Amino acid sequence: MSEKCFICDKHRGKINTSGITIYEDDYVYVGHIDSNDQLKYIGHIMIDLKRHVPTLGDMTMEEASAFGIIMAKISAALMKLDGVEHVYALVSGNSVPHLHMHLVARYINTPKKYWGPMAVYDWEDAPRGDENEVIELCNRLKIYLEGH
């Protein structure tokens, strides 16, 4: 772990995020992303690599396998459980040099002008909820993963 890293601090318990842990193993941690909004966009999930590395190319094959499998499972769960027609996947690393992937749900009937991993946030009718609704989604995803 790095001493000056947002994600490492999150894993140490120094930073609170929305919802609950959706999944965790030796390699990855999965949770709902936090936002400063009172009503959060429901379905913005983040997969963190536990080991502090900056990019996809820095992963071991074991980490890459765990990362890819959980990405596919979470995406499938969102699509089966919550009326999601597409899941955007984004790895940037520009502001936080610790490998993490954003999975952002795009719901059925999202107008085309709001398609895109961050554009969905601008849709006034996008599914939003409070902390309890985020926790409900996390629990649904967690239960789905336990069965698959």
Rank of each mutant, 00 (worst) to 15 (best):
N94W: 08
W123L: 01
V120I: 15
Y107R: 04
L90W: 10
G93D: 08
M79L: 11
E63P: 09
P127D: 02
L81S: 06
P97C: 07
E133L: 05
H52G: 03
A119K: 15
E131F: 08
T60W: 02
D130L: 13
M61W: 09
H98E: 05
E63Y: 03
E63S: 05
S92I: 12
F67K: 04
M71N: 14
E131V: 11
L78I: 08
P97E: 13
G57S: 12
T110P: 00
F67C: 08
K73Q: 14
K112M: 10
D125P: 00
D125C: 01
T55L: 09
D122E: 14
G83W: 00
Y88T: 04
V120Q: 00
H102I: 10
V96G: 02
V120A: 03
A119L: 11
I69V: 14
E124W: 00
K73H: 11
P54H: 03
N132F: 09
E124K: 12
V96R: 04
Y121P: 00
D82T: 05
G68K: 10
R128H: 01
N132E: 14
M79I: 10
G83E: 01
L78T: 09
V91E: 14
V104T: 13
D125M: 07
H52I: 01
A66H: 06
E136H: 13
M118L: 13
A66C: 08
Y107W: 04
L103H: 02
A126M: 01
V91W: 01
L137A: 06
A76T: 14
V134E: 01
E85T: 13
P117F: 13
A72G: 11
E131I: 05
V91P: 03
D125R: 07
F67Q: 02
T110D: 03
M71Y: 13
K113I: 15
Y88A: 06
W115R: 04
I108F: 13
L137G: 02
D58P: 07
K80D: 15
I69C: 07
I108W: 04
I108L: 15
D82R: 05
L56K: 09
G57K: 07
M101T: 10
G116A: 06
L90Q: 10
E131H: 14
M61T: 05
R128M: 03
V120M: 05
I70N: 01
K80P: 07
R106L: 12
E85S: 10
M61Q: 15
I74H: 01
D125A: 12
A64Q: 11
S95G: 05
L103F: 02
G68W: 09
